[in-house]
Amino acid sequence: MTKPKVISLFSGAGGMDLGFINAGFEVVWAIDFEPDACETYSKNIGDHIVCEDITQVKTENLPDCDIIIGGSPCQGFSNANRQTNFLDNPKNLMVREYIRVVKDKQPKVFVLENVPRLLTAGKGKFLNEIKEQLSNYHIEVKVLNAVDHGIAQKRRRAILIGSLIGEIKHPVAKKETMTIRDVLTNISDELPNQDEYRASRESTIEKMKLIKQGDNVHSLPASYNVSPNTHENVYRRLDLNEPSHTLAHAGKTVTIHPTEDRIISIREAARIQSFPDDFTFYGDLNSKYQQLANAVPPKMAEEIAKEIHKHIHNKN
């Protein structure tokens, strides 16, 4: 059986694509707007990625495909009421672009990854608008947590699977839970990106020393005058016996290594996101942390892709 062909939108560093490739798909075309992410993608996955603005892409120029995947940026959650559509919000332009490509290419299956709030915004109005635009597809909707799919991280994402070839279910949760100990043990200093992490001022390191595994900025002494509004993931030290919290930009949030008084490295963040050790990140340090923060964990994408592959195989 020939490999089903995939078009990837908003590909980033390629976490979602890697998962689909590992599950037996062929990504024939990809696009992202960030040059560093495109460099990471091209050097690890392939030079079929285009680095440009998706609004300038003409769908008739795209190759044929069986699947379209992508996690479009989505920020406009506050403007919709009975008179206003979410899809009219300029902040949701990228969601509209995703819909445009799917409507024009009519793949057998599409996968849209996004924040869970997409499903509840406007008491479901945003989701209904997307379903109306793609009404010829059977769409299965579910919030998946990465920790249920072999990843040492609590990361909830909304996954929409649209199908023209019958109902495709989401992957079921695994029974075992991966911990930070499982993924950060035996990291060699020789691995790519392991020596790259944001250096901290001495005053920051002194704070780190006061924070135990699993604790965060709110466990600092009262003399530090921490605002009660500070997010609980700021200055959070990873716990060896637990999965990570949702990994954001580890340098900005000051995500602390479980046993060392420093911010986690790019390689350590990559392991938490389930990227293999031979997957090297490119760009400056800030960009590498952001690429990882934006990434779909490859192992979670692979679980989704396996369900789709199984369905296509059964249909054939």
Rank of each mutant, 00 (worst) to 15 (best):
V109I: 05
I151D: 06
L247E: 06
R82I: 02
R82T: 04
T55H: 10
D32Q: 06
V28T: 14
I161F: 06
K123F: 00
T120F: 00
D215T: 10
L220A: 03
L87Y: 03
D195C: 04
H311P: 13
I99Q: 09
I211P: 00
L238Q: 05
L144E: 14
V296S: 06
M16P: 03
E52Q: 09
G19A: 02
S265G: 02
E132P: 06
Y224C: 02
H249Y: 13
I256W: 10
P63A: 02
M208S: 02
G15Y: 15
G12Y: 15
K174L: 08
D195F: 10
G12P: 00
T2M: 11
E190R: 01
E97K: 12
D53F: 13
N145C: 07
K315H: 10
Y235W: 14
H311C: 12
K5L: 12
L9S: 12
K175C: 06
K131T: 13
S8P: 00
L247K: 01
L191F: 11
T2R: 01
I187V: 11
L119V: 01
C51Q: 14
G70D: 09
Q291G: 13
M300F: 11
G150R: 14
I159L: 14
N136T: 12
I7Q: 04
G70M: 14
N92I: 03
N92R: 11
K43E: 00
V217R: 09
A23M: 03
E242D: 13
T230W: 08
P192R: 00
M1W: 03
Q291D: 01
I211R: 01
Q75E: 08
H149D: 15
I67H: 08
S223Y: 15
R181Y: 14
L240E: 10
K175A: 10
H311F: 05
N241W: 08
L134T: 01
P228N: 01
F25L: 12
A80F: 00
Q75H: 03
H313T: 13
I304H: 07
V50W: 02
Y197D: 05
K212E: 15
N79S: 08
S203R: 12
K252Y: 04
L9T: 10
D53H: 12
N225G: 01
D32S: 07
A158C: 11
Y282N: 07
